[in-house]
Design a protein around this nucleic acid. Sequence first.
DNA 1: GTTAGGGTT
Length: 937
Amino acid sequence: PPKTPASAPPPPVAKPAVFIPVNRTPEMQEERLKLPILAEEQAIMEAVAEHPIVIVCGETGSGKTTQVPQFLYEAGYSSEDSIIGVTEPRRVAAVAMSQRVAKEMNLSHRVVSYQIRYEGNVTEETRIKFMTDGVLLKEIQKDFLLLKYKVVIIDEAHERSVYTDILLGLLSRIVALRAKRHLPLKLLIMSATLRVEDFTQNQRLFTTPPPVIKVESRQFPVTVHFNKRTPLDDYSGECFRKVCKIHRMLPAGGILVFLTGQAEVHALCRRLRKAFPFRCSQPQEKEEDSAEGMRRFKKSRTRARKAQAMALPQINLDNYSVLPAGEGDEDREAEMDDEEEALGSDLDLDLGDSEANEGEQPDASLPLHVLPLYSLLAPEKQAQVFKPPPEGTRLCVVATNVAETSLTIPGIKYVVDCGKVKKRYYDRVTGVSSFRVTWVSQASADQRAGRAGRTEPGHCYRLYSSAVFGDFEQFPPPEITRRPVEDLILQMKALSIEKVINFPFPTPPSVEALVAAEELLVALGALQAPPKQERMKKLQMSQLSCPITALGRTMSTFPVAPRYAKMLALSQQHGCLPYTIAIVAAMTVRELFEELDRPAASEKELAELKGRRARVAQMKRTWAGQGPSLKLGDLMVLLGAVGACEYAGCSPQFCQANGLRYKAMLEIRRLRGQLTTAVNAVCPEAGLFLDPKMQPPTESQVTYLRQIMAAGLGDHLARRVQSEDLLDPKWKNAYKTPLLDDPVFIHPSSVLFKELPEFVVYQEIVETTKMYMKGVSTVEIQWIPSLLPSYCQFDAPLEEPAPSYCPESGQVLCHRASVFYRVGWPLPAVQVDFPEGIDRYKYFARFLLEGQVFRKLASFKSCLLSSPSTMLKTWARLQPRTETLLRALVAHKADSRDSLLAAWKKNPKYLLAEYCEWLPKAMHSDVEKNWPPTTDS
DNA sequence: GTTAGGGTT
């Protein structure tokens, strides 16, 4: 570019009039113009030009995810060396959005690309990159300033995924650092709700509140109907009755029911299918005897015909304000109670919420096409809900929360919301988790209602009163406040954020959660323990600012939980890595086995389920094996399952036959690939590869694996209760753990359920009817002090066996007995490093004098004026040479071979005089010639 | 002697 002459006036600082042309098809352009966000393009781009950080709020249907990246692209916010990054909380969204935007812009996926955990199509040409939030967090580890991005868009920020929250905290700092470097980075935060106070009112996060731009949405109106009464517990039954009424009384349109779990979903599906069977050519006779039955039958036939007629698209289904004449009037009056009449409540499609238990019997209404939907459902079965229902039927999807955010079902006009959600809870102190069903938040309830208005105006039936709704939490608490955070803390420490307490979290985790995370990471050796003298004072501060160790840095490169990362870090020896990788991958992917405990709908299905359950139980026993192999317990089952499945080519048939979830096994395969790459990156000499025909581990490898598992799960050690505790029947077959007063049990699905080994480690404790340990493996008592020293309180070194010198490590060793922390379980004495302190110097001095540390000194041993063992005698002080030598060692902290070598590096004459005191004068010159005695010759 | 929702590196 031509140089501006020094005398010329500075160029005007007007916004660059950049406009990157996009060659959209006319159809696409027309579609885009319908989106409300297009009206806000100028406002958004002006805000972005003037502010480093901008918040865009717009509900589903505003088009913000697809359009804002295009606005930025057209305004020149991407070039050869700077791209636009967009994060999504879900993989499917990242992939789908990249494809959608590429199509809208008429650009190749080489330009508009995606990157998710295992795959991506990013190229050098990429200008807009969609990715999962976790991917961007990992990228910050490699390039803290995110220099290849000119803009980062955090989408769905209102969902408050843990990675989104951490990203926002980091980006608030990165934006400032980039500004200092005159390489400005723009941050756009996109939220579907106006819940942005955690971002705007958080001074630590953003010192000046970023501007908020609101965008209209293109949602159709949804009429919300509350129940007058709130059922006490039978919300499933209430769902059933409401669906029946909608189906009988209301015009065409899909029904979406929100329930809380797999079992509930299946139960309601069965009940609804029975009530509205698919083939009902002949009406059921037995019910039509009574006049009431006949009346109902006639009515339902009428409705069925009407519903079919109304399915014609020309008819506006919402163009009436009361129920169609002659339909349901009696029912309505019968159901209306005085309160409702007095209040004159909105009768528009309000179905009432009477307890009338009609419709349990098969009904001649339109068949109802009932489909279950939950996350763990096989993808091909999930896909059913996206197809139009068979001709002449109404779609009814019975779903868990997966339909609230993750999956959008087309054609839903009615939503039935039980108002409940199942969530996992963690006990902050003990780590025990449980699942509880609670009321949803108002925001969730509104999100569920919104699912009825995607394609046309809709209705949402809430099976609780408006008063109860008023008592709901406004928003669900952010995920980061609800779960353990050791994985996040390790990631942050790897980014050199030592004082996590000062990190600008949008919403910080509790201090207990932060302390628990650092304690675990210290115990795993991933963080440096706080200095001992600070243990009492400022305990919490120092606990919350432990720096990362070399081991921690290695662990942070493994994309799994820190406990599992520790296992990987320990597995280089004895060829254990392929096995540890398989086990860790299987532990990380949840729900390996299909749920087969559902009640069967038919005799045939019952027989099939029984057969499959038996087969799975048999396979688990086979995989666990006998003897030493069985001691690895449920983790051996995981290894066996992964090995056998992979050997069979991971075919859907093999999975089906053995009760394994195909999707889970594919995820394990991909995770094994990723972990293999990650291990090779830190340990290239391992030369690991994924062997589809991996042989089972040898007997000794199984033992090493048990030790590796124990070392990673040290804080999850449990001991079988001793006979003296068995007086109380509640402790029968129970285990005790350091942090729990109550008994815990091996889960009945564990292969160790009947074995009852004395010591076990477990993957997790889930509280259901009891506190159950899952993922159990056995531990030998003598392993505990050597594998888990940070959880053991050691006694003084034993005199017998006597302390010794270790030629390999150059350290003083000794035997020490110990007890396990908090519970005081006595543990056998094992050989460990001699504890720091004066006695270690004494023993080191003795071994040095004996010539054990440096062989050169051995030749002088016979001439020593005192026995080396004098160093340890109580009367040692009576001999000044002991005291002199000891002081010299202490002064230079020389209590091991390495520390002594370091001292000699600084001063080669170090310790010469003190050593000479132990020898007759005649030998001093000989000693001097050979000083320091570090070479063998 | 079982009962687990939804995400992600």
